[in-house]
Amino acid sequence: MSPFAILTAPLTCEEIEWKIIAAKNGSTTIAPYIDARAVMARFDKAFGPMGWQVDYTPALIGNEQGVIAAIAVRNPETGEWIVKKDGSGPTDMESYKGSISGALKRAATVWGIGRELYSYPRVIVEGEHKYIPFKVLDRLKGLPKAIAEGKPLPEVIRLTPEGESAKGR
């Protein structure tokens, strides 16, 4: 498989994490994301640990301090280094570390990693939860495969805390 095919291959359920983005009005909305370790593993698999690098630069984004990540990969055919960049501002948790991780993940998206996450259905769980119920996470394990296979999916998936369809409730 070519390095580009490795980078752009659909994410697996093992690479995807879920986070709560809103818990109000009797429901919890969750969204998929990829963490920095999974990004690094993809680049290692595509180019080897010596065939890519990342450089972080502090940047002023609006009135807030942010970080730009520049991911460079060595073209296996020419040896030339190719760089793509993106940035992130501070996050709610671990402001500086979060902005570094966010910048890496955004720059990885420029390279094609995880772009399909933007097309995932919105997932809503009944009830206001502080943590995502395990049975919901278990139910969502099949979603990456369905996305990769191009199966038609609804715009919104509604689930009970037991991971069952909440459609018609």
Rank of each mutant, 00 (worst) to 15 (best):
E164G: 05
T91S: 15
I21W: 06
E14I: 06
P161I: 04
I21T: 10
F134D: 11
T78S: 14
G89R: 01
I71A: 00
P49Q: 11
Y96A: 11
V83T: 15
T57Y: 10
M40A: 11
I82Y: 11
L11V: 07
K130V: 13
D86K: 08
Y56H: 08
K97V: 04
G114W: 06
L137G: 03
D138S: 06
R42K: 03
D92R: 14
V125I: 15
L143E: 08
N75C: 13
K97A: 07
A31E: 06
L159I: 03
P76W: 09
I157T: 04
A107V: 07
T57H: 14
R37I: 08
T57A: 14
P152R: 12
W52N: 00
I68W: 09
E155I: 13
R74D: 00
G26R: 13
M40T: 10
G150W: 07
R169P: 00
G48A: 06
P121N: 15
R74M: 06
I157V: 14
T8I: 11
A148P: 05
P10V: 13
K85M: 08
M50N: 11
E77L: 11
S2N: 15
S88K: 01
G66T: 01
L140P: 00
E164C: 03
P90V: 06
V125F: 06
W111M: 01
T91C: 15
E149P: 05
Y33W: 11
G114H: 07
V39S: 02
V54A: 05
D86F: 04
P133N: 03
G98C: 09
T160C: 15
G112K: 00
I16V: 10
K151V: 12
E128S: 08
A70W: 00
E80R: 06
A72Q: 11
L140M: 10
Y56E: 03
T12L: 08
M1E: 15
D86Y: 06
Y96M: 12
V136M: 03
A69Y: 07
G66Y: 05
W18D: 00
N63I: 15
I100H: 02
G150A: 05
E17M: 09
A146N: 12
N25I: 09
D92N: 12
D35L: 02
D92L: 15
G168V: 03
S99F: 04
A41N: 07
P32Y: 04
F134W: 13
T109I: 15
A107S: 08
Q53I: 02
D55Y: 05
N25V: 09
M93E: 11
L140Q: 02
A103W: 01
L7F: 09
A41L: 08
I124H: 13
A38S: 05
G89M: 04
L60N: 12
Y56W: 04
K135F: 05
L11M: 02
I113C: 02
I71G: 00
D55P: 00
L159A: 07
S2V: 14
K85W: 07
V54G: 00
E80T: 10
L60M: 15
E17R: 12
S119A: 14
A9H: 08
P144E: 04
T57G: 07
A46D: 00
G79I: 02
V73I: 08
G163V: 03
R139Q: 07
R139M: 05
A23S: 14
I6W: 09
N25F: 14
S95I: 11
P121I: 10
R139T: 06
I30F: 04
K85V: 13
P121V: 08
I34R: 02
A38C: 08
K24Y: 06
T57S: 13
G163L: 02
